[in-house]
């Protein structure tokens, strides 16, 4: 069993857990877990769930309390309701700069992820479906780039954009964000899995051009995988902080991460602490919704990236 991200072999995502059969057998099982160990497991798992969920619960509670009561007791329970008043107050700060930041985040992440997914799909398809000189080298370089985190390139990017006068330009965020070596890696795995060589051969015999084969046959067959790639890239760009912080000085161009951290660091000068929490809560909602509603696409990406 290979442990790493070398040449991906097409492994179909398991349809159903083979372990489900075990539950049927449980009733007949002579040495099933005792009550003590069962309750011990549930107690530890519950404790872990409290650790993971309590900070988020606090954020929700603080966001719906009337402004000014955020840091009063009880911190973890309801104490009045004025969520919509808070949102209104938040949107009034600095002529609605918060909405502007959200729109910027959506634009940067959306544009980068759409273009990036297309480029990744094309590159991954080429690496999976064609044999050509330089293929091994190209894939090796992409793998190396997957292993070296993007943040490492941020400072050099800043220095380069500074030299060519591209600072304070949305392109300075979008151009680097379009490039996703991990997306190419995923696209390669998925293309190898879901686009059969026979289909491509048949289309070639029918006289279809290579481009037409990719867009008419390859893309629809890879569609679920492309959703996964889009999601990973969208979230990565949405979460990016250091790059937009360094290349965008103009507040009105910044994404919501940079804007909110700027508020938080101002010690209440630019926005009251209570409303910063409301902003943090609102900025997380789109991502949590995306995670919850598209869970199977996440799992597909995690499995393809990690296990072979």
């Amino acid at each position: 069993m290979s442990s790493t991200l070398t040449e991906p072999t097409p492994t179909p995502v398991p349809a159903a857990s083979p372990r489900s059969r075990a539950s049927a057998r449980r009733r007949l099982d002579p040495n099933r877990p005792s009550g003590v160990s069962r309750w011990g497991v549930i107690a530890i798992l519950t404790l872990s769930a409290v650790y993971f969920l309590l900070p988020l619960w606090w954020m929700v509670m603080a966001s719906i309390k009337p402004n000014g009561r955020q840091f009063e007791e009880p911190g973890l329970w309801f104490n009045g309701f004025d969520f919509f008043g808070n949102v209104k107050a938040l949107l009034e700060i600095n002529d609605g700069i918060f909405l502007r930041w959200m729109a910027n985040s959506i634009a940067y992440a959306g544009i980068s992820a759409v273009i990036g997914t297309l480029l990744s799909a094309m590159a991954g398809y080429a690496l999976a479906k064609y044999r050509f000189r330089g293929r091994g080298l190209a894939f090796g370089v992409i793998l190396a780039a997957v292993l070296i985190p993007k943040v490492m390139f941020t400072l050099p990017l800043f220095l380069m954009f500074n030299a060519v006068g591209l600072l304070n330009n949305p392109l300075a965020v979008i151009l680097p964000s379009v490039v996703s070596p991990f997306g190419v890696y995923l696209a390669r795995v998925f293309a190898a899995q879901s686009v059969p060589d026979e289909v491509i051969e048949a289309a070639r015999i029918d006289g279809a051009s290579e481009g037409k084969i990719f867009f008419r046959l390859g893309v629809p067959m890879m569609a679920p995988a492309l959703v996964t790639i889009f999601l990973f890239q969208f979230v990565e760009v949405w979460n990016n902080y250091l790059l937009p912080l360094m290349v965008l000085n103009d507040t009105s161009m910044q994404p919501v991460t940079v804007g909110l951290v700027g508020w938080a660091g101002s010690n209440g000068q630019q926005a009251p602490a209570g409303l910063i929490i409301v902003g943090a809560f609102l900025s997380v909602i789109p991502l949590v919704v995306a995670f919850l509603s598209l869970q199977r696409f996440w799992r597909a990406g995690l499995t393809a990236g990690a296990i072979k």
Binding site: A123, Y130, F153, P156
Partner: peptide, 28 residues
């Protein structure tokens, strides 16, 4: 012909990868 199409598919990504990864690193 297959090699040419493969490189055409790779080109947009490869170009941006070069400009946004390798050039800045060299510049630094």
């Amino acid at each position: 012909r297959a090699a040419r199409s493969a490189w055409l598919f790779l080109l947009p990504f490869a170009l941006l990868f070069l400009l946004m990864y390798l050039v800045p690193l060299g510049f630094a």
